[in-house]
Design a protein around this nucleic acid. Sequence first.
DNA 1: AAGTAAATATGAAATATTTAATACTAAGAC
DNA 2: GTCTTAGTATTAAATATTTCATATTTACTT
Lengths: 209, 209
Amino acid sequence: MKEDDFEVIRKSSIQLKFSKGEVVYKQGGKAQSLMFLHRGIVKFCYQYETGQNYIMTVVGGPKLLGGANLFFRETNIFSITALEDCDICLIDLPAFIQVAMGNPGYILALCEKTLTMFQHSIFNFISLAHNQVNGRIANVLLYLWEHVYKESGYDFTISRKEIAEFAACSHENVITTLSRFKKDGIIELEGKKIIIKDFEGLNIISKRG
Amino acid sequence: MKEDDFEVIRKSSIQLKFSKGEVVYKQGGKAQSLMFLHRGIVKFCYQYETGQNYIMTVVGGPKLLGGANLFFRETNIFSITALEDCDICLIDLPAFIQVAMGNPGYILALCEKTLTMFQHSIFNFISLAHNQVNGRIANVLLYLWEHVYKESGYDFTISRKEIAEFAACSHENVITTLSRFKKDGIIELEGKKIIIKDFEGLNIISKRG
DNA sequence: AAGTAAATATGAAATATTTAATACTAAGAC
DNA sequence: GTCTTAGTATTAAATATTTCATATTTACTT
């Protein structure tokens, strides 16, 4: 990236801090910026009219987000909410597009990142579609640990309710399943912290259902 | 698109015909081309080691496909199979990228199309995650009619097994559900052909589960 | 035309999942 | 400190779904 390109983008960006639980983007709101997640963890959430939530994916920084908004036009189709305290830089979309049109390589790179994120989601969805609750929860735990919490510096603490919204099942079912995993020695629960003991075992459950 | 750009791409493209049931791309195979679906209907299919299939999406021509491959690199993560006879033009990827690098607008446009396709899939997945079989099948029927069969020139005929692979349930369940829809006057079955009678009703079922 | 395979159809039994009722614990508000 | 709320935990009953067994129809092969 050339110095003056960088300057254009920096000038039109805003640095923000979000606390755990705060909403960064609101579903249905106007999408006017890309978002660089410096540090922290956020969830992408779809909300039904009935009030039910569905967590589409969870990602940790540093990562450029909002490629989806770049193409999905005017409105956000998801809410983005901080799961842990976040440092976020909002990048003005018109400024970015102006710079990007002079640098096809940026666009390709951004698309690649965005699609890679979608790809993760899609594999998660495929797991949802074809596995039973056991396998879905195992899959969610593995994803969260490997791709989000492992190197994030945050404790692997996430509420049963949120696991339920990610694995698309009732929170009672998550509680029961986690208890069983614990009894079987696959995970340990230290206060709020989840510790995976037997990755191999979880993997097998995640595949076989 | 400029004339000579078009020429470069045309020179490196191949026109092919595929019959109903033929595999266009094989999951795990090398991805070396974009694909322009002139005419016909294809399914994107994910296959498990266990032999189970899952249909990720179904699309009808004319449409540019394979943007996923452009970014998901070396190997196809899905198989693409013809559901109806297809005319397909395979576009050499290196040639396309060469032209595209000189035209950032093409890349944006391609990404937008690809992401729009993903967006459809994602809404479908969200329906899968949160609805019961009734709603999932209603959703699949509406999607297939509205976005694939309605203006395709093909009869809306698709096997119960394929609906099952799309809605992620057993084929027995599809059969039972279609019978009930028929009894309730929501659809009609004319031989192999599915005719939706009550769009409003299907929509309600698709939303309420 | 007969035989075979594939798709459609149906019902019963087995299994999985949600819902509802209830209780305990931890954290935040006042 | 007490009250309130949200999260965690467990169970039984109600419901949804899959699996299995079996039959019929349709399409394809020879």
